[in-house]
Design a protein around this nucleic acid. Sequence first.
DNA 1: AATGAATGAGGATTCATTCAT
DNA 2: GATGAATGAATCCTCATTCAT
Lengths: 204, 204, 204, 204
Amino acid sequence: MNVETPQKKPSRIQQRNRAKILDAALEVFAQHGYRGATLDQIAEASGLSKPNILYYFDGKEDIHVTLLGQLMDTWLDPMREIDPGGEPLEELLRYVRRKVEMSFEYPRESRLFANEILQGAPRIAPHLEADLKPLVDRTADLIDGWVGAGRLAPVDARHLIFSIWATTQHYADFEVQVRMLAEDDLRARAVAFLDLMYRRMLKP
Amino acid sequence: MNVETPQKKPSRIQQRNRAKILDAALEVFAQHGYRGATLDQIAEASGLSKPNILYYFDGKEDIHVTLLGQLMDTWLDPMREIDPGGEPLEELLRYVRRKVEMSFEYPRESRLFANEILQGAPRIAPHLEADLKPLVDRTADLIDGWVGAGRLAPVDARHLIFSIWATTQHYADFEVQVRMLAEDDLRARAVAFLDLMYRRMLKP
Amino acid sequence: MNVETPQKKPSRIQQRNRAKILDAALEVFAQHGYRGATLDQIAEASGLSKPNILYYFDGKEDIHVTLLGQLMDTWLDPMREIDPGGEPLEELLRYVRRKVEMSFEYPRESRLFANEILQGAPRIAPHLEADLKPLVDRTADLIDGWVGAGRLAPVDARHLIFSIWATTQHYADFEVQVRMLAEDDLRARAVAFLDLMYRRMLKP
Amino acid sequence: MNVETPQKKPSRIQQRNRAKILDAALEVFAQHGYRGATLDQIAEASGLSKPNILYYFDGKEDIHVTLLGQLMDTWLDPMREIDPGGEPLEELLRYVRRKVEMSFEYPRESRLFANEILQGAPRIAPHLEADLKPLVDRTADLIDGWVGAGRLAPVDARHLIFSIWATTQHYADFEVQVRMLAEDDLRARAVAFLDLMYRRMLKP
DNA sequence: AATGAATGAGGATTCATTCAT
DNA sequence: GATGAATGAATCCTCATTCAT
């Protein structure tokens, strides 16, 4: 009988162990990708035995899917928090800042996501369609409205979004390369640079 | 006796088969990553038998390393072609355009590279140190000089470079997501958007 | 997590299975040599599946090294038991007798050792240097002392040792040839012959 | 069409290439055993290509069998040359000396033979029955006769022969061990030791 | 809830041999 | 005679998963 069956609410120890597994799996999947990760590595990193991991999850893929599901929730939060009633430039710059800070705070999540998209999103495509697409459509409309009202410089809303994702997540996804090439104060300089770039780009 | 040993020039058939293998491997590695790729897939995609592939290459890793080596050569070309004697804004905008066009022309190469960096650059780190770092140092100095001369708006040269890489390669590396969310004319819009963004960003 | 790591004492079933594997491997390695032996043969002979064998040992080489390590321990015992305070001729004749009896009792161990030495001792050379050499040095000194004291006929101590090894192990290592050519009572005749030979050789 | 078919006498070049292959194969088989040896190694050592080797021999086994067949011829020569009409002690001591010198001159042949016997003589058993057994029977009878006539000390003839083989071939078959433990002048000391041992053993 | 033991399905690689010229 | 190219059959090993307790 699997823990997932929602008959009883998970006990304290169950919740803790699931969390330990997911944290370990996040580390391993983010570094090695889905195929490159092994249950042994996750078992090692989580401190649980391999069969015990399979007591909490139906298998490797279940862990991965669970991680991606959790990820989508928090991943989209910054975009959801763009306030349609706020000052357009400040709202978008705040979004950029939150995104870049997430890259430095949660690089593993970013890499997990990047890995999944790179492989063609085989396991997360439904989530994207269901959650991401409507949100992006809505946000693009919002930006278009702002632009139409002359409150932002004219810009292709969707490509603006892509560019924000690209530039912010880059610090997590290409971290080894960035760290090899960057100077000190990486994080502060990144935040400042992106604020500057999007300010010049978007100021009406 | 291995084919790699540079004793004799490779025959016609050798060159053709090595090319077939590398092309197939590029496809497979770009999609599945190093660990996720199998020789069976490469054999299937190349039309050669698995042992025959191992007749031309020393093993899976040899194929991968060969691909990465080839990649670095062409990957850095656009940056090498920035002309220190040119008009700064136009030189950089040309660089952006070449980069984004490479993402649309050679998305597999971009994804191969992204995969390698995501996993911590285990096989390409030496190349990065040897080839990429000096080139970036030089280019950053060049940009700093242009900024100092007032020919470009003030900007952090290294983070500018990162942002160009991020925004251009994003179209290849996150292609499935981009195609799910973008409207028609993806390529033309991407080129136009990036030209606009970096023009506003860099105009002195 | 590997069974070899000496964190916990091996369970009953582990000890039994490791013993089964080592016994099967002794048979197979002794007959076919390291390269000629296959895990399939060991699996077949031990009654375990191939992956299960690799659950208990890190690989083919680990099994082989374990066998050789065990072997050295017992293999040198007879020489260690030569009593410096005993009657020289009787001590050496007892050593010869123990060695020839080991060849008849443990022919597989002898052949395993012979195989390893024949191939140049690639895996046992360190053991030889560490364990065998000091013991032989000591024994040769002992014999030299006995000869010097007139208690043994003059003899080259090291070549005496070689000859004892050669003649006794021959019954195990060249068993098929010996059995083809010998008459009945092989073992008794072998013991008697060697006793006679070394008695005539060594009597002062 | 294979070269072995005795339609034409082999050309000069054929003889030379077969000799090169057999010499290389002797080296390789003696060191690695039958299963451990590869055609690639033989090709490398002989300077011929792998397909070319298979032009001269029907396969790996054919090379091995050919080597063993050649070996038997020369291997038994010393025993054949024991002169029934000679002085018994001197005849046998001469046999010992020739055997030990062969071990130093042709260690590869000795090891090839030892390998084959160790593995149970799968390919040479017929030769042993046909060639070796009659010769040993005859020699044992000869020795028995000499003993009966009081011209040699009483001794078990067959075990005497075994001991001569064992002690002399030991210097080739266990060479790495012997060289690790022996002092200088290995060969001279070996000859002297064996002469001494068998003289004491056999003097009537 | 947990784990030691076991395995079937791959997966990279080796190797004797064959093919084609 | 000779060789570059190719391959089927192993062979060692990995790994997600299952079994038994």
